[in-house]
Write a protein that binds this DNA or RNA. Structure first.
Lengths: 208, 208
DNA sequence: TCACCCTGTCATTGAGCGTTGACAACAGGG
DNA sequence: CCCTGTTGTCAACGCTCAATGACAGGGTGA
């Protein structure tokens, strides 16, 4: 057997060079941000990381665990609730998650990309639901004084719908709207969703 | 039950007695409404319809074609744009899609259930994108005088986010809100999304 | 009668999946 | 020196999937 001589092997790695495990995690982030959990195979991740499929599994234990760790590795980057922001600031930060990031570059991948891509996948659902609740809904609710915690989930559902819809279908009519305007629309929608009085009607219009 | 194409059926069947093909389509509607395209196997559909797996494929040609036909058979039931409704009425009808229906009963399955469940699935994406555009976004845009067609997509993205989020995660805090209030919140959010002026700020609040 | 679809079943195929076991190469510690 | 743990590779397992090919019963039309 030609024991691979190439073996840019293990430990005599150049400084700054990522280990296999790190490359696997980075590849997983990229791929999970770009397609749903079920469409992302360990073989894809392995190929992107330049390692064997078996090692991807061996190094993390299971596919679900890779997903969980990719999400966790992304999460602390956000600091979404740092400094106990008020409602408007919080909404502003959350809107950051929907814009200004390029999921094709690993350093720009945000947790929200993973959440929206895989939210429908039964295996990833539990992981995502927990993350959504504790890392997004809770801080958002807190920023609005804990009144009506259900509203935080409502607002986040609108957000994830927007992100998903834009990423998946990318309807030309929507993309034709300048990004600044899109952002303003989204911010307003979220803000209105969080403000109790707003459901009573806006600009004179009332729900039928 | 949608009467399928293909001639007055050779045998005039007892009322209530469905052909295999009809049972397959009904089962497909139920299952596609309950779980994503990729999680729904032809075997599941076959088992639910009480026929062999091979016949499911034989009768429709491919899995994607079954999905497409299930969607098409559901679509005309809605009459979402009947009578050239105004904006508020249209929003009201669209909100009907998100409530008041029980996706466990085949007669209550709505197109939106299929759309939101499978929107992330690459195989179903094209079918869904087309349906979203022509059957929902277009009538909605028309109801608002064709101004800013991108807004229709924006509003629909919020809707699909809400439906998906509630169906998939069903966060307790959100479900704790009375359904009438949820509906009002959703209606208001969609209405605001469609009204250009609203992005300028609501109740004195302005986007940062 | 015969031929012909339509409806339906059974066995199978080929591909892709997550996962596992055996094992190689190497590093650090005793 | 051996021992152990980490980092990998390779081949294969068992499984599910959509899709096919062969074939059988029955009603219909000629």
């Amino acid at each position: 057997m030609p024991r691979t001589l190439n073996s840019a092997n293990s430990t005599d790695r150049m400084p700054g060079q990522a280990t296999g495990k790190e490359r696997i995690l980075a590849s997983a982030m990229l791929l999970f941000a770009r397609m749903p959990y079920s469409d992302t195979s360990l073989r894809d991740i392995a190929a992107a990381a330049g390692v064997d499929v078996a090692y991807v599994h061996r190094a993390f234990g299971s596919k679900a665990e890779i997903f969980r760790q990719a999400l966790l590795a992304l999460a602390p980057l956000d600091d979404i609730a740092a400094g106990d922001p008020d409602g408007a600031t919080m909404i502003n930060r959350i809107c950051d998650l929907a814009f200004l990031r390029d999921p094709r570059k690993v350093e720009d991948v945000r947790p929200l990309h993973l959440l929206t891509q895989s939210s429908l996948c039964s295996e990833a659902r539990a992981i995502i639901a927990q993350f959504f609740g504790t890392s997004l809904a809770l801080p958002l609710s807190r920023a609005f004084g804990h009144a009506d915690p259900g509203r935080a989930h409502f607002a986040l559902s609108l957000l994830s719908g927007f992100v998903t819809h834009r990423a998946i279908f990318g309807p030309a009519d929507l993309l034709a709207i300048p990004e600044a305007d899109q952002r303003q629309m989204l911010q307003t929608a979220l803000m209105n969703a969080m403000l109790p009085g707003c459901s009573d009607g806006v600009f004179g219009w009332r729900p039928i």
